[in-house]
C-alpha cells in the first residue's frame, strides 16, 4: 500500500478520479443505474404498486409480446415514415438555405437568426402554437387555404390521414435551422481554390454545387444525418402535446407508446423492452452510418 502511495502516477490518478467523483456519482446514480435496471426489467414483470417485491421473472415474454402488439407495430411504422421523410427534408432545405445565406444577401444575420430561432425555442411552446395554427375549422392555416379557394382543406391534426405529416412539417421547420447552421460552418471549410479552378474550367454554378459543395460537405452531412435520425426516432414532445398518438394511432410513435405503457398501464417490464428495442434501432442505424462513412472517407 505504501509503495503504491509513493508512486506519483497513482497519486495523480487518484486526484483526478476524486475530481470527477461528484459528477461521476451523479452519472452512476441517475443515468447508469437506471439504464442497467431497465435492462433487468426487460426480463421481468413489475407490479409497480407493490414496490420492489412486485418484480417477477418472465424471461423473454416481453419480447414475444412485441410481435402481437398492434400499437408497437404501428409506432414502428410511423417512426420509420417520420424519419425517412423529415430527415432528408431538413437536410436538403438546410443545405439550400445555407448556400443561399453564404452568398451576399440582404439581412443575412436577421434571416439566419429567424431560421435558427425555432430550434432553440421550447418544443412544447412550439407545439402548442402549431396545434392552434393547425385547427381544422378556425385555424389560420386553413383560413388562408380557404381564401385561396380550397374548399376542403386538410384536417391536419384531426384527420388520421394528415396528422403524422402535420407533425413532420412542424419538426422539419424546427430542425432546418440546426442543419443550416452546421452547413454554414461546413461551407467555410471548403477552399475557394476549388471554385476558382472549376470556374476557369468553365463549370456552371449548378455543376459547382453538385460536384464541389455537396461532396466536400459529406462529413457535415453525416454529422447532421446522425443527430437528426436519433432526434427523430426519439420524437415525443410534439406527439404528447399535439395529438397523444391519435387520431386512430396515426401519430403513435415508439417513445409515446413507451410512455403510455409505463405511466398509464404500469407495464414497466414491457415498456422497458420497447425502449430497448428503440435503443437497438438507433444503435444499428448509427453503426451502419459509421461503416458507410469509413467508405466515403477513403475518397478524400
Amino acid at each position: 500500500m505504501r509503495q503504491l502511495w509513493r508512486r506519483a502516477s497513482f497519486r495523480e490518478n487518484l486526484a483526478g478520479y476524486l475530481f470527477i467523483l461528484p459528477n461521476l456519482s451523479g452519472y452512476f446514480l441517475f443515468v447508469l443505474l437506471p439504464i442497467l435496471f431497465s435492462l433487468y426489467l426487460v426480463f421481468n414483470d413489475w407490479e409497480y404498486l407493490k414496490g420492489f417485491s412486485g418484480i417477477s421473472w418472465v424471461g423473454l415474454d416481453n419480447f414475444k409480446a412485441l410481435g402481437s402488439d398492434p400499437k408497437f407495430l404501428k409506432a414502428l411504422q410511423n417512426n420509420t415514415i417520420f424519419t425517412v421523410v423529415s430527415v432528408p427534408a431538413s437536410i436538403i432545405l438546410g443545405l439550400v438555405l445555407a448556400v443561399i445565406l453564404n452568398k451576399h444577401v440582404y439581412f443575412k444575420n436577421t434571416l439566419r437568426t429567424l431560421i435558427f430561432l425555432p430550434y432553440v425555442s421550447s418544443l412544447v411552446a412550439v407545439s402548442v402554437i402549431w396545434s392552434i395554427m393547425y385547427r381544422a375549422s378556425d385555424g389560420p392555416i386553413n383560413q388562408v387555404l380557404r381564401n385561396f379557394g380550397i374548399s376542403h382543406p386538410p384536417g391536419w391534426l384531426s384527420s388520421p390521414d394528415s396528422a403524422l405529416f402535420a407533425i413532420i412539417i412542424m419538426s422539419v421547420w424546427v430542425t432546418i435551422g440546426y442543419a443550416m447552421v452546421i452547413y454554414l460552418a461546413g461551407l467555410q471549410g471548403i477552399s475557394k481554390d476549388l471554385y476558382e479552378a472549376s470556374e476557369i474550367d468553365g463549370a456552371s454554378k449548378l455543376r459547382q454545387f453538385f460536384r464541389i459543395t455537396v461532396p466536400m460537405l459529406t462529413p457535415t452531412t453525416f454529422l447532421i444525418a446522425i443527430t437528426l435520425i436519433i432526434w427523430s426516432f426519439q420524437v415525443f414532445g410534439p406527439v404528447a402535446v399535439m395529438t397523444q398518438g391519435g387520431p386512430i394511432d396515426s401519430t403513435m410513435v415508439l417513445s409515446y407508446h413507451i410512455y403510455l405503457l409505463a405511466f398509464r398501464y404500469y407495464k414497466m417490464g414491457y415498456a422497458a423492452a420497447v425502449s430497448w428495442v428503440l435503443f437497438a434501432i438507433i444503435f444499428v442505424v448509427t453503426l451502419i452510418q459509421w461503416q458507410s462513412q469509413k467508405r466515403w472517407q477513403q475518397h478524400f
Partner: peptide, 11 residues
C-alpha cells in the same frame, strides 16, 4: 356538435 377528432386536437 364539434367533431370528436377536432375536439381532441383542439383540447
Amino acid at each position: 356538435m364539434m367533431k370528436y377528432s377536432e375536439a381532441v386536437a383542439g383540447k
